[in-house]
Simulated assay, not measured.
Amino acid sequence: MKRRLLLFSVLSAFLLLAACGQERSASLSSPKQSASTDSWPKELHVGFQKSSFSLFLKEKGYLEKQLQKHGVQVKWFEFQSGPPLLEALNAGQIDIGYVGGAPAVLAQANPGSKLVYIAYEPEVARAIIVPKTSPIRTVADLKGKRVAFGKGSSAHYTLLTALETAGLTLDDISQVYLQPAEARTAFERGDVDAWAIWDPFLADAEVNGGARVLIDANGLPKQYGLIVGRKEYVKQYRKVADVVIKELGKVHQEIQSSPDEAARLLAKETKIGEDIWKKTLSRRGYGGFPLTKEVIDAQQRIADRFYELGLIPKTIKVRDAVIAEQ
């Protein structure tokens, strides 16, 4: 009897260990457990704007060439400005994109935000413009006037900080929320008195739209260009993000070394004149870099100011959404 009990106990233990081993093996082989930063996805969805060098990267096909080696298909999605691009990112529709500082803050403050900061680019030219014949000569003259800008865009912050130099706030003007294409039409028709905008739309308005710069962003608080990503995607597929940054860096170098050729390609794809792109390229910085303390601090100032004005519902720490810092 004792021998039978002993044999039964040994057999039960063996079966239990075998079952545990099968369970562990199944767990290790499951897709959820095998996914890591060393894996590659089937697709990469990239959001771009006509004002960003991501467009140049798209047309050159450099990203596709690098990622197809790993079976990754690249899909591109165009947006007029940062806010709608970031809405798509938070909705899981795109994985990586380029935006200005202000829209990134708004996206990070959004409940359930999926945004992470990956890298930054130097500022692009931004300004508030008025018609050449306008009687508006100073920022103070904007009081009570109709000013067009994209809500939550980099131009929003440019306008805010420009008004503060004259002791004004956004409440002192009539705010007209318009995307670049609609704002250009309203500006030329005289439906608005001023327009806050960035290159290449700014350069186009200066050359072809009868615009005069009232104040530019030089001397105003800095606002960098930012490469951002969807948190879950970037953490799982960090190698993809690294490839994107590397190829964007090559694009910056290529444009900087051959601006005339770049202007021709960008003009063809955007239907914005070659001379406009030459003007745009001549007055911007180049390169893609890891986030620095200076950039993070500049982004934090935007966040703090937006919270003070009630433009975001809660305080945020920009650093909490930074993937890598230099």
Rank of each mutant, 00 (worst) to 15 (best):
residue 126 R to M: 06
residue 102 A to C: 14
residue 104 A to K: 03
residue 107 A to S: 14
residue 120 Y to D: 01
residue 107 A to T: 09
residue 129 I to Q: 03
residue 100 G to H: 12
residue 120 Y to L: 12
residue 111 P to S: 01
residue 107 A to I: 05
residue 123 E to G: 10
residue 114 K to V: 03
residue 100 G to Y: 12
residue 104 A to Q: 04
residue 129 I to H: 02
residue 112 G to E: 04
residue 129 I to Y: 04
residue 102 A to N: 12
residue 126 R to S: 02
residue 126 R to D: 00
residue 109 A to Y: 01
residue 124 V to D: 07
residue 123 E to A: 14
residue 103 P to C: 05
residue 126 R to Q: 09
residue 112 G to C: 07
residue 127 A to D: 06
residue 109 A to L: 05
residue 118 I to P: 05
residue 108 Q to T: 13
residue 109 A to W: 00
residue 119 A to H: 10
residue 112 G to V: 08
residue 113 S to M: 06
residue 130 V to S: 02
residue 121 E to W: 04
residue 103 P to K: 08
residue 120 Y to P: 00
residue 126 R to C: 00
residue 120 Y to S: 06
residue 106 L to N: 05
residue 112 G to D: 04
residue 111 P to I: 00
residue 105 V to N: 11
residue 130 V to H: 04
residue 116 V to W: 03
residue 111 P to H: 02
residue 123 E to V: 12
residue 114 K to S: 11
residue 106 L to P: 11
residue 119 A to F: 09
residue 112 G to H: 01
residue 117 Y to S: 10
residue 129 I to G: 03
residue 108 Q to F: 13
residue 104 A to I: 01
residue 126 R to F: 07
residue 106 L to H: 04
residue 123 E to F: 13
residue 100 G to I: 01
residue 104 A to G: 10
residue 110 N to R: 14
residue 124 V to P: 06
residue 116 V to C: 08
residue 114 K to N: 12
residue 122 P to W: 15
residue 113 S to W: 11
residue 107 A to R: 06
residue 119 A to V: 00
residue 102 A to Y: 10
residue 101 G to L: 03
residue 119 A to N: 08
residue 102 A to R: 11
residue 117 Y to E: 11
residue 122 P to E: 10
residue 109 A to Q: 03
residue 111 P to C: 01
residue 102 A to K: 10
residue 120 Y to W: 15
residue 105 V to F: 13
residue 108 Q to C: 14
residue 110 N to Q: 15
residue 111 P to E: 04
residue 126 R to L: 03
residue 118 I to H: 13
residue 108 Q to Y: 11
residue 121 E to D: 10
residue 111 P to K: 02
residue 120 Y to F: 15
residue 110 N to I: 07
residue 100 G to C: 10
residue 104 A to H: 01
residue 118 I to W: 14
residue 127 A to M: 09
residue 126 R to N: 08
residue 101 G to C: 01
residue 126 R to V: 00
residue 125 A to P: 12
residue 123 E to L: 13
residue 128 I to N: 07
residue 130 V to E: 05
residue 116 V to K: 06
residue 109 A to K: 05
residue 123 E to M: 14
residue 103 P to W: 12
residue 120 Y to G: 03
residue 121 E to R: 01
residue 122 P to R: 11
residue 111 P to Q: 04
residue 117 Y to L: 14
residue 125 A to R: 14
residue 100 G to D: 13
residue 111 P to A: 03
residue 127 A to G: 06
residue 126 R to I: 00
residue 117 Y to R: 06
residue 108 Q to E: 14
residue 124 V to C: 05
residue 128 I to P: 05
residue 127 A to W: 14
residue 112 G to T: 08
residue 105 V to G: 09
residue 124 V to T: 13
residue 122 P to Y: 15
residue 125 A to W: 13
residue 101 G to E: 01
residue 113 S to D: 07
residue 127 A to N: 05
residue 117 Y to V: 12
residue 124 V to I: 15
residue 105 V to D: 10
residue 119 A to S: 13
residue 102 A to S: 14
residue 114 K to F: 06
residue 115 L to W: 08
residue 103 P to E: 01
